[in-house]
């Protein structure tokens, strides 16, 4: 029936898809599905590691029962990391979008600033950050890092005190600045993705709008933002994934602690439950985004 409706291209296409997907399907079966299935099974089992092999015994839902009802931290950690997700994703999105739009403009020193904002990508995603923080913390002059993430190297409180600001504003500014450090450091890759998206918008659209007499502000809302729909989608997914799999995420680190104590069953149960809930949340957000924004913009 379908062949009648759409002869030619579409029917050919289904077969061609597997030409492109074949290596991936083989790879998934070989390197991903087997370990993943086993990791899921671990959450229903008690694990004992013997030299050279892994002993497992099926214990049903005991691991889940433990983390949900007997572990005192799990629920708290779960809520903390979800709250963190909801707060930080929009912030990172906005900060990186602003920076990307600024860096996409033509101005003197653009190359320098672009290289500059690449630094977090190298430093914040590897061993260097931990080492650097450790070294700065051990620094004899003690000018460097007061707490682990905020890079608050200048004592802003003194500046604010000198400006005679009201205490409430001063507190808010301090918190905002601390967060700014953190956010900028987490936005490196998002900036790169947004830059790629901005570069993919055809110049033609801007030329037309310029001829029509649109202001820069209107151009941003009616051309740039709608044309960035897919990139935005990509950045949202990426930021969520980064946030929930970061090893400094409270829940993930709790799970890894189980692993470190060779308690693989409970660790697997804790993390699978988390990924399941977050996965459903992501699916809901993306579906909503697709329905509300992408459809309208297209």
């Amino acid at each position: 029936m379908k062949q009648r409706k759409r002869p030619g291209l579409e029917t050919m296409r289904a077969r061609h898809a597997f030409l492109f997907l074949a290596p991936w399907i083989v790879g998934m079966v070989l390197f991903f599905l087997f370990p993943i299935v086993q990791a899921v099974y671990f959450s229903f089992a008690r694990i004992a590691i013997e030299p050279g092999r892994v002993e497992t015994s099926f214990i049903g839902l005991d691991n889940f029962d433990y983390i949900l009802f007997k572990d005192t931290q799990y629920i708290d950690n779960f809520l903390t990391s979800l709250t963190d997700l909801v707060i930080s994703v929009p912030f990172i999105l906005i900060v990186s979008l602003i920076l990307a739009v600024l860096l996409n403009n033509r101005f003197h020193g653009r190359l320098f600033f672009r290289a500059l904002f690449f630094l977090p990508v190298i430093i914040a995603s590897g061993a260097v950050l931990d080492l650097y923080l450790g070294a700065a913390a051990a620094d004899a002059t003690e000018i460097a890092v007061n707490d682990s993430v905020s890079f608050s190297m200048i004592d802003f409180s003194q500046i604010f005190a000198a400006l005679n600001l009201p205490t409430s504003i001063e507190n808010y500014l301090t918190v905002a600045l601390d967060n700014l450090f953190l956010l900028v450091w987490q936005s490196g890759i998002q900036i790169i993705l947004f830059l790629a998206g901005l570069q993919s918008i055809p110049d033609l659209l801007y030329e037309v709008s310029h001829v029509e007499g649109a202001t820069k502000w209107e151009e941003f809302w009616f051309i740039t933002l709608p044309m960035l729909g897919r990139t935005m989608f990509l950045v949202i997914v990426f930021t969520i994934v980064e946030n929930i799999t970061a090893s400094n995420n409270v829940l993930v680190s709790q799970g890894y602690n189980f692993f470190a104590n060779l308690d693989y069953g409970r660790g697997a149960a804790a993390l699978w439950l988390y990924f399941l809930v977050v996965g459903v949340l992501i699916a809901a957000v993306l579906l909503l985004y697709n329905k509300v924004f992408l459809k309208r913009w297209n």
Partner: peptide, 14 residues
Amino acid sequence: LVPVQMYSLSMSVN
């Protein structure tokens, strides 16, 4: 979505 740490044990066996 799933980090390597989740299945590292079975991956190394694999």
